[in-house]
């Protein structure tokens, strides 16, 4: 990883965390509603994976604000979507869980656990069909690995040697259920082993995630078929804003907070790339400004009009009948 990339990743992680805290604050005031799933504590994985996977399509879940931003979608358009505004990336139709932007090869934003995996596999089929350089990255949590869609997807991707990277974000909890209570082991990559090569990575180490995803991207581009990466991480907040989080001990949360991915990346910047404290401070400040501007933009933006209710439902209007 070059210095510029390292700084960019750090900046986006810092922006992501500030963005999430701002979202939390504006959820408390009622400006953001519905379900809000925060990604605090998982920034290394969300940012480094998106930055590394630069030749392909991404399908992900409802905990995707930071991924969307890391993918290149403007923080303003993401925050405005959380606010339900017309200027949001989904024009207020989707909200927090449904951010899509094909111009950044970012296909959401799916809130049916595991339900997007067959879509990612189909897109990988299209890329292979088109002999494209693009592969596909499907991001999902440990909770998705227990459902049928997951196993069907592993099977098909493997049978057809599709260019797809399965990235399992193992944060140990499917809402309030610890993964080992509903699966026979902690490491979900074991489920993929009969089908494809698997790798494990520390999801809180942005450099390690970046390098693993780069390697995986090159692998799937060469036509070897699919690959599975499991990244271990931890969300500091509840599953969503409505989760009191009583299933995890304060000690456990504290252990993971000591593995703060942002502090770790800060250390990397200083020690490996010789970035000064003042330069880091400037990046933090720039991130704060971007978040403040996003909030102001979202707050000032208009809501969609009721007259637009049916817009975007179909491409082809039916005028008779």
């Amino acid at each position: 990883m070059d210095k510029l990339t390292a700084e960019e990743i750090y900046y986006t992680m810092a922006l992501g965390r500030k963005f999430e805290y701002a979202a939390k604050e504006h959820y408390m005031t009622g400006e953001i509603s519905g379900f809000l799933h925060l990604d605090i504590g998982q920034e290394a994985l969300s940012v480094a994976a998106m930055k590394a996977f630069d030749h392909g399509d991404v399908f992900t879940t409802y905990r995707e604000h930071i991924m969307a931003i890391a993918r290149g979608i403007e923080p303003k358009a993401v925050m405005a979507e959380l606010f339900g505004k017309k200027t949001g990336v989904s024009e207020g139709r989707g909200g927090s869980m449904h951010l899509f932007d094909p111009s950044h090869f970012f296909y959401g934003g799916d809130a049916i656990v595991g339900g997007h995996l067959p879509n990612a596999v189909g897109c990988a089929y299209a890329r292979k069909f088109q002999e494209s350089e693009h592969g596909v990255m499907a991001v999902f949590g440990d909770g998705a690995t227990n459902g049928g869609a997951f196993f069907e997807s592993l099977n098909i991707a493997s049978a057809w040697k599709l260019p797809i990277l399965f990235l399992c974000e193992n944060n140990r909890y499917a809402i309030g259920t610890e993964i080992t209570r509903v699966a026979p082991f902690l490491e979900q990559a074991k489920k993929a082993e009969p089908y494809m090569p698997t790798m494990e990575v520390d999801g809180n180490d942005a450099v390690a995630v970046y390098e693993a995803i780069k390697e995986a991207q090159a692998y799937i581009q060469k036509g070897h078929g699919p690959l599975f990466i499991e990244a271990f991480t931890y969300r500091w907040e509840g599953h969503s804003m409505s989760d009191p989080g009583s299933y995890r001990s304060p000690e456990e949360i504290e252990i993971w907070k000591r593995r703060d991915p942002i502090e770790r990346m800060k250390t990397v910047l200083k020690e490996r790339y010789g970035v000064s404290d003042a330069q880091i401070e400037a990046l933090d400040q720039k991130a704060q400004t971007a978040v403040d501007e996003a909030v102001a933009f979202a707050s000032e933006s208009p809501e969609p009009e009721v007259s637009e209710l049916f817009e975007h439902l179909f491409v082809e209007e039916v005028t008779h009948g």
Partner: peptide, 15 residues
Amino acid sequence: LSIVGNAIGMAIGGL
């Protein structure tokens, strides 16, 4: 589930 799910992904991918 995959027949329809894959078709959706194919359509997103340009087929």
